[in-house]
Every structure is written in structure tokens, then in C-alpha cells.
Amino acid sequence: MYLIEWNWWKMQTTSANSREESEEMKLPQGRLTGNDWYESDLEDVHFRGVSTKPNPPTPLFKFNNTYMEIRCGGSEEKRGLITIMTLGGICPMIYTINLMAIGFAYLDLTEPHLSSVATILLTLFMIALSSTINYLYIRYGFQITRLEAFTSRHLLIRFNRKNQQVYLHRPKSCGGIVTLPWRTTGSSAVNHRDDHASLGMRQILHWHPALTGLPHCEMAMIGNQGNGGSELRDQWEFIRRYMEEGPDAVPRPRLSTQLPSPIQAFSAQFEGMSRFLRNSSWLFKVILLMVWPAFVILGTAHWVSLMLCWRPRWPKVIREAGLPGKPVPPLTTLADYPPDVQERLLANADRWQLKPGKRPDKKPRSPRARSAKKDASSV
């Protein structure tokens, strides 16, 4: 499921009018808080060691002396939900309505003696209803379906250590394929202060426009969900050492298949939960056993969605990048996008402007303040 990446790209390419309307609908205190970036935020973009135990992110598809390739995606564990709604609800409904409309029209054409004003009006109504539903699905619904089916099987990130570049492989609806400099890559796993919010989270890599020269911020959520900040730092250290020191500086990883594996489909539902499950009570484990049919249904739908997609393929210039005598892929610039997309990206460029100084610390809410607020609300 590419819902996070799809929404991220839509947010960055929204038109000026749509953005103004959405800002007017927000409460005053929430209009700009999500858009504040400070110069101190870029201090996290560094390439110093953060761990002594480099551990590869998984699933990792390719690893050699030139590049390594890892799966991306911010909500892979939820993949299958849209497939269930599409194949179990939307498609049967569209099929039934279309079949009824065709049936009414067939009867009116082949047996006109049985027709009346009422049956003809009913036929016209069914044809209009069928046409409307088909249009709405093709115009609006199919782009939701394509978040899990009839698209690339996975989002990919490729680290090329020979050219010191990073490549993102995504559908056009999620930003498309881009080439970025390795030395502009920031990670969410470099600071211990974020450990409390890292359980069950994926590592987020980001490329701020102040470093890349692009008018927008790029983002990639790589690998499986982690069991905490230390695990994510081990994964970042693996990537850092590979790019900075080479493949001999990291342990040899175990590679995963890019085929639609049922093992990956069913295990995705338990990503980031291994430490929690080991320490959970026996009652919680019994509850999990009671709801196992839900896991089977979701895992099956996940597997079906993988089979309904095709294996992503890189452009030739990226496939040959790093080989002797082959050209270095050009970095992505604003000019690589269509004119209408360029206009919308520039219209949203102010989202990423840096404020001077450090990000202010959040004021902790004291227990006295919380109790006073509670007492005031109860009066």
C-alpha cells in the first residue's frame, strides 16, 4: 500500500487554490505548525557512526560491490485492505449493476413486444446508473485501487556506492523515479532522543531542498517496522558503512526474493512486534489465537495484491550506473518534471523554508496544569 507516499506527493503538488482552501478550513493554531523547519533540523544530516552493530534493513533484494537495493513503503503491513474492498465489494457491485443494465437493454432490443414505458424508463435508469458508477470508479476509485494493484510490486531504494547516489523507484502518482546525492541523505535514526517514538516505526530517510536544490522534500520509509530506536540505528549504520567504507565493512546480508512470496505477505502483519510478543502476557497471546482468521484473510489479500502487480524495473541508465565506462545518472532537477507539476511544486516550496536558529523545545504539561484543566472542564 502506497497511501503515505501518495498523500505526501499530493500534498507537495497541490494547487495554490486547493491549498488556500484547505488552510482556511484548519484551525488557526494548526495552520503552520506542521510546516516549520529550523536550521538546527539539518544538523541531523551527518555521516558519523551511530552504532557498533550494523544490521541490514529487511527485505534487502540486492547487494554487491556496486549497489544494494532495499524495499520501501510506509504501510506495507496494511497492504491487502484496499484489495479486500476492491475485490470483495467494489468489483462485485460494479459487475452486478453492469450486468443488470445489459440485461434490461438486451430484453428491450430482442423482445420489444414485452416492453412498456415503465420498462424502457427502468432500462434508461440502469444504463445511466451503470455509466455513472463506471465513470466515478475510473475517474476517482481506480487511483485508490492502484495503490495495491496494477502497479509496481514494491517501492525500491537503491544505494550506489560507486557513484555516491541514491535512487528512488516509485510510481508517477507517488513522485516517480528520482536520483539524489548520497551526501544529502538524512535519517530519522541518528538521535537517541527519538527512541521513545520509534517502536513499530520504519526508518525514514529524507532529502531537504536546502541540500538537494529541489523545491520539495523527498522522503522514503525503508525496510520493515523496527522494534525500537536501537534497531533503526543499527540499520542506518549498515547503510552508512556500506556507502562510506564499502561492502567489506558490513556483515553479508541475507537476500529476499522479489517474487510475490506468501511468507512476506503473512509475516508483514507482525512487523515490529517480536519484542512486544515475547514480553506479552499469555492472555494476549490467547486473544491473538482467537482472531487468527482475520490475519489469514488480510495475509491472503496481501499476497493477492502482490500477484496483481509487476516487478519494478529501473531505467537503463540506473541499471548500468557504476559499471566501467557507463555514464553517471544525472541528478533529478525541477526541469525533469512536466510544466504543470513544476508550477505546483514551486507553489508549495515555502513549506520547506528554514527558520533561523534551533527548534524550540516543547513545553511539558505539568500534572498541576492537567488537573486544573480537568477540574475546569468538569464545572
Rank of each mutant, 00 (worst) to 15 (best):
I138K: 14
T96I: 02
Q165C: 05
V50W: 00
N35S: 13
L32C: 09
E231W: 00
Y242M: 00
A197E: 14
W6P: 01
V317C: 06
K78F: 08
P293Q: 11
G246T: 01
L147I: 07
P360A: 12
R158E: 02
I138N: 07
G200A: 07
S377P: 11
L199P: 03
H46G: 12
N17Y: 12
G357K: 14
S267E: 04
K285M: 11
L136C: 14
Q258A: 13
F270C: 10
R48M: 12
S51N: 03
T58C: 11
T33L: 09
G141S: 10
V317M: 04
R158Y: 00
G88Q: 02
G103H: 13
R278K: 11
E343N: 12
L283N: 04
R365C: 14
W310I: 07
A149C: 13
W236Y: 06
E271N: 14
V296M: 11
S173G: 15
Q203A: 13
P367H: 07
L308D: 06
R146P: 09
E69Y: 02
G299V: 03
R278M: 04
H206M: 09
F276Q: 13
P251H: 05
E43R: 15
G213M: 09
G89P: 06
L259N: 12
E237L: 04
I287K: 10
G322N: 01
Q353N: 10
I287N: 09
T132D: 05
R241G: 02
P339Y: 06
L345T: 03
T110K: 13
Y2V: 15
S130H: 00
D375H: 15
P364A: 08
M11F: 07
R278L: 09
I204E: 07
P312H: 05
V45L: 07
P324I: 02
E231A: 07
Y67M: 06
L107I: 12
I318G: 02
L277H: 02
D41T: 14
Y167F: 13
N17V: 15
R71S: 11
G30D: 12
T185S: 10
A249P: 01
K62G: 02
I144V: 15
M100C: 14
R79I: 09
I239C: 01
I222T: 07
F295A: 12
T300D: 05
I297Y: 01
